[in-house]
């Protein structure tokens, strides 16, 4: 029994969620490979941002793709779908 969770008197009513899922670092699920952006090839088309199922891709200040490894599960969709071959799956 987790002692960090509230008792029944403190819990919000009706079973509403009371924490955002950003607490869950799904990046820990990666099985040996992670996507790495080759900035020289990335044109900032954001296809990887659109197609990432985990909201783990964004565009950095330079307008280049950026991986949030806290949440990236390493599925590899971004690497496969990048029209410019700018993302590579690399052993961790």
């Amino acid at each position: 029994m987790s002692s960090s969770l509230p008792g029944w008197k403190e819990l919000p009513m009706g079973g509403v969620a009371f924490r955002p899922s950003t607490d869950i670092k799904t990046g820990e699920w990666r099985l040996g490979f992670r996507p790495v952006v080759k900035e020289e090839k990335c044109v900032g088309c954001a296809m990887c941002v659109v197609l990432c199922p985990d909201m783990a891709m964004g565009l950095g200040e330079e307008g280049k793709a950026q991986v949030n490894y806290d949440y990236c599960k390493g599925c590899g969709i971004c690497a496969r779908e990048c029209p410019y071959g700018a993302i590579e799956m690399v052993p961790e």
């Binding site: 799904t26 699920w29 199922p53 783990a56 949440y71 390493g74």
Partner: peptide
């Protein structure tokens, strides 16, 4: 409109679709 930390499987189509919608 979805927070990171969705607990779907790696490569899940459902969370991708929800995000796009």
């Amino acid at each position: 409109m979805l927070h990171e930390g969705v607990r779907t499987c790696s490569g899940c189509g459902a969370s991708l679709i929800a995000k796009l919608v």
